[in-house]
Amino acid sequence: MRITCPFCGERELGEFTYLGDAKPQRPSADAGEDAVYDYVYLRDNIAGVMSEHWYHGGGCRAWLKVTRNTLTHEISAVEAAAGAGAAKVGA
């Protein structure tokens, strides 16, 4: 499998680390225990197109949001996490 890192270009799987479902958003500080429980434990495991977090630890150390079909391993989109790179959101 190969992933096209927005910073480094097309790179081999071995440079990346998989984390999992990128959909859940970390709840705000006052969201309550149930919301945090869901965030920590409820993960989709889709047979099909999924949005996932991958880490380019063997390259630029960017966290990526990868859209991957878990049945075919086809990767249809790769974007850097909001805070990846040097530029700051809103800065």
């Binding site: 680390t17 984390l19 977090h53 150390r61 996490a81 805070g83 990846a84 700051k88």
Partner: peptide, 14 residues
């Protein structure tokens, strides 16, 4: 390092 980068880039990009 990986965890902190996740926190910085994904959880707290602001």
């Amino acid at each position: 390092m990986q965890h902190l980068e996740f926190c910085r880039q994904v959880l707290f990009p602001e």
